[in-house]
C-alpha cells in the first residue's frame, strides 16, 4: 500500500543488469579518482591570505558569509521556498498540527520533564554556537538547527512556541534570513559600490548581525517544516 508507485518492482534480470551497470559506473569513477590523486592544488592558501580582511577568523564562516555569501543567500531562499510550500500544502481539512498539541492533553510526563530541562540548555547551546562561529566550529546553520530542535521538543511536549503557522510573526521570521542577506547586499552596493563587499572595519559586526537573523530564520523555517510533516495525532482514547 505504501509503494504507491506505478512500477511494482523491477524484474530480477533488470535488477541484475542495473547492478552490473552500477558496479561499472563505480569502477570508472574510482579509476578516474585514482588516476588523478597526485595533483595537489587548493584554495586554502587563498582563503588564509584574505581571512584577515573577511571580518571573522573561522575560515568556514568566512567562506559562507563573505567570500561565497551569494551561495548562502540562495540556500536560505531554498529553505524559505520549502517552508512556504510545505506550510501551504496543509490541507484545510487536516487539523493543524499546531492546534493538535494543545488538544492532546496526555503528553507523557517523561517528555514534559525532558523538555523542561533540555529546551533552555538547547537554547543556550544555540546562542553559544552562533557566537563562537566567528572563530571556532559553529555558526548560523548549526545554531539554527539546535534552536529548531528545541522548538520541536517544546512543541512535542505540548507547549508550542507559536500557535498559528499563518501568523505574521512567523512569516516575518521566515523572510528575515534571506531578507537580511539581500538587504545588506543591496545596502553595501550603495555604500561601498560593490554587492556584498563589507567595509573591513565593520565586517565582523555586520556578519554577526546577518548570522543572528539567519539563525532565527533557519530555526523558524525548520520548525514550520517539521510541524507540517508531523503526524496527525489519532483522535484516540
Amino acid at each position: 500500500m505504501r509503494s504507491n508507485e506505478d512500477n511494482a518492482g523491477l524484474p530480477p534480470v533488470a535488477r541484475l543488469l542495473l547492478a552490473i551497470g552500477m558496479v561499472a559506473i563505480g569502477l570508472v569513477l574510482a579509476w578516474a579518482l585514482w588516476s588523478h590523486s597526485e595533483t595537489s592544488s587548493s584554495l586554502a592558501a587563498a582563503v588564509m591570505t584574505e581571512l584577515p580582511r573577511s571580518g571573522v577568523s573561522n575560515p568556514v564562516t568566512a567562506v559562507l558569509l563573505n567570500f561565497r555569501a551569494f551561495d548562502t543567500m540562495l540556500e536560505l531562499a531554498v529553505l524559505l521556498l520549502v517552508a512556504v510550500t510545505v506550510g501551504g500544502l496543509r490541507d484545510p481539512r487536516e487539523v493543524s498540527a499546531f492546534a493538535q498539541v494543545k488538544q492532546a492533553a496526555s503528553v507523557s510526563p517523561l517528555l514534559q520533564s525532558l523538555a523542561r530541562d533540555l529546551v533552555p540548555i538547547m537554547m543556550l547551546t544555540s546562542g553559544y554556537l552562533l557566537w563562537i562561529g566567528a572563530k571556532a566550529p559553529g555558526g548560523a546553520f548549526q545554531a539554527g538547527a539546535v534552536l529548531a530542535a528545541a522548538a520541536v521538543l517544546a512543541h512535542l511536549s505540548g507547549r508550542p512556541w507559536l500557535s498559528n503557522p499563518g501568523d505574521w510573526r512567523i512569516r516575518a521570521l521566515l523572510v528575515l534570513g534571506t531578507g537580511a542577506f539581500l538587504v545588506s547586499a543591496l545596502a553595501l552596493l550603495l555604500v561601498t559600490g560593490t554587492y556584498f563587499r563589507y567595509p573591513p572595519a565593520l565586517a565582523g559586526a555586520w556578519i554577526l548581525i546577518i548570522e543572528t537573523a539567519a539563525t532565527l530564520s533557519i530555526a523558524a523555517m525548520l520548525y514550520v517544516t517539521f510541524c507540517a510533516v508531523v503526524p496527525m495525532m489519532p483522535s484516540r482514547r
Partner: peptide, 12 residues
C-alpha cells in the same frame, strides 16, 4: 561582476 569584490577562484 565579481560579487563582494572577491575575484574568481575565491569568490563568485
Amino acid at each position: 561582476y565579481a560579487l563582494g569584490g572577491w575575484e574568481a577562484p575565491l569568490g563568485i
